[in-house]
């Protein structure tokens, strides 16, 4: 069973959620380019009802870090 965040990434990156884990990053996922990053940010803000600063986005190089950032913001994850 994959969590909400992994499913969101799988959806936006158009990959099988089974291929993703907390270490997944632009270096490990081919479709994770800067355009995908823009879509990911928009999707995360909508799905988790949070507002991400530019610095937050810069930090989020992996799914694991994205999870930490969202947890720190008290998102329901």
């Amino acid at each position: 069973m994959h969590d909400k965040l992994v499913l969101l990434f799988a959806d936006e990156l158009d990959v099988d959620p089974a291929t993703l884990n907390d270490a997944s990053s632009p270096d490990t996922v081919d479709s994770w380019d800067s355009l995908a990053a823009m879509r990911l940010v928009a999707a995360i803000e909508t799905v988790f009802s949070v507002s991400l600063s530019a610095r937050d986005v810069m930090r989020m190089r992996t799914i694991g870090i994205a999870r930490e950032v969202l947890q720190a913001k008290g998102a329901d994850i």
Binding site: A37, M38, A54
Partner: peptide
């Protein structure tokens, strides 16, 4: 979107 402006020039 200031965030998009600074991160992606969008």
């Amino acid at each position: 979107s200031p965030q998009g402006e600074y991160l992606y020039r969008q």
